[in-house]
């Protein structure tokens, strides 16, 4: 029900950020999220950042996922 896209924060001015998805840039509001800085990845829904993605833990769980299925010899 809700299209939301992982996007990178390119710059911030006040409560508004410029986000980047594959070179596509647009404004997004930061009114619904605290402690965001340039370079962070956020999930954006309808022009508002709603979640900050944690790069390290995302990488780790992706790695775990790949291992879990590779190990089984599938």
């Amino acid at each position: 029900m809700c299209l939301a896209i992982p996007s990178k924060i390119v710059s911030i001015e006040g409560n508004t950020a410029i986000i980047d998805v594959d070179g596509v840039r647009r404004q997004a509001s930061l009114m619904l999220l605290d402690d965001i800085k340039t370079g962070d990845y956020v999930i954006v829904h309808a022009g508002y950042a709603i979640h900050k993605l944690d790069e390290a833990s995302a990488l780790e769980s992706l790695e775990l996922l790949r291992e879990a299925f590779a190990q089984a010899g599938d």
């Binding site: 990845y41 992706l62 790949r66 299925f69 089984a72 599938d74």
Partner: peptide, 20 residues
């Protein structure tokens, strides 16, 4: 990391399908 494309991986998908 883009937090999207990684999760469209063909090999990983097929492995999960096999497990299902």
């Amino acid at each position: 990391m883009k937090h999207s494309e990684e999760y469209r991986d063909t090999l990983l998908s097929r492995q999960i399908i096999k497990r299902i």
